[in-house]
Structures are given as C-alpha cells and as structure tokens.
Simulated scan of single mutants.
Amino acid sequence: MEKDFAQQFEALLEKYSELLVGETDGETKEKVKAWALYSHIAKSMPALIGHWSALYPEARAEMKEIINEIKVLNEQHRQSTKK
C-alpha cells in the first residue's frame, strides 16, 4: 500500500469513528475497524463467520463485546448530538 493511501484511509477511518461514536482515539478506531470489517464479512459470507466462531469461541465472545460497546457508544453519541 502506498503511504499516501494509508494516511488517507486512516483519515477516513478517523472521521467514521468520530461520526459513529464521537471518539477518535486509537483503541476506539481499532474497535470500529474490527466491527466494520466483521459486519461486512457477516453479511457477505455468513458461513465463514459461523466457521470462525466455532473455531475461536473466545474471539467470538470478544467480538460480541466490541459490537455491544460500539452500539452503546453510538447511542450515547446520538443522544448527545440531539441536545
């Protein structure tokens, strides 16, 4: 990957994280990236997610936690922007 593209894509991810959950710190961006990629894979190849979940139940549990955290942060962010 070219350096310029990597930086530009990182800027896209940062803005997406800001709009989605209102936070752009590194840990939150990584969670948003994992959530977005997992969601895409689940929609486009659900059998792969099923296979992965069976192989790595601990990772699946962690992914569920990330999904729930993103959901809560998104709801909090939406509520705070309504005011």
Rank of each mutant, 00 (worst) to 15 (best):
G22F: 00
K29I: 03
E18D: 11
L48M: 10
E58P: 03
D25H: 02
I66M: 09
L19D: 15
N68E: 15
E65K: 13
L13Q: 12
S17F: 04
A54C: 10
L12M: 14
P57C: 07
E69F: 01
E30V: 04
K15G: 03
E58K: 09
E23Q: 10
L13Y: 06
A11R: 04
V21N: 00
N68T: 13
Y56V: 11
K31V: 04
I49L: 04
H51S: 09
K43L: 13
I66E: 05
Y38W: 11
E23S: 08
E18Q: 11
D25C: 05
D25F: 03
G22W: 01
I67V: 15
I41G: 10
W52A: 12
T28F: 10
K33A: 14
V32P: 00
A61C: 08
H51D: 13
P46T: 13
K29L: 05
L20Y: 02
E65S: 14
E14G: 10
P46N: 11
E62K: 03
M63T: 11
Y38H: 14
K15D: 14
M63S: 07
E18L: 09
L13G: 11
S53G: 13
V21R: 00
I66L: 07
Y16L: 08
N68I: 07
Y16C: 02
K33Q: 12
Y38N: 10
N68H: 11
P46H: 09
H51N: 10
K31P: 01
T28A: 11
R60C: 09
G22A: 04
I49G: 02
A54Y: 07
A34P: 00
G50Y: 00
A47W: 03
I67N: 06
A11I: 00
Y16H: 06
A36W: 01
W52R: 02
K31W: 08
K33Y: 11
L20K: 05
I41Q: 08
G50N: 09
S53T: 12
K15Y: 05
D25Q: 04
Y38M: 01
M63L: 13
A54N: 11
E58D: 15
S44W: 01
H51P: 01
Y56K: 06
S39K: 02
E18F: 06
I49N: 05
E27S: 10
W35G: 01
I67W: 03
H51T: 12
L19M: 07
W35D: 06
A59S: 15
H40V: 13
L55E: 15
T28R: 08
E18S: 09
V32T: 09
I66Y: 06
E69S: 07
T28N: 09
S39C: 03
T28M: 13
Y56N: 13
S44Y: 07
I67S: 05
I41T: 14
E14R: 06
W52P: 00
L55K: 14
L37Y: 09
P57T: 08
K33R: 15
A47V: 08
A59C: 10
P57Y: 04
E62S: 09
K33N: 12
R60N: 14
G50K: 04
E62T: 03
A34H: 05
A59G: 12
I67F: 03
K33L: 15
K15C: 07
K43V: 14
V21M: 02
E18N: 09
G22Q: 01
A34W: 02
D25V: 01
M45P: 01
E69L: 07
H40I: 13
S39I: 05
L20H: 05
I49R: 00
M63F: 10
E58A: 15
K15I: 04
N68S: 13
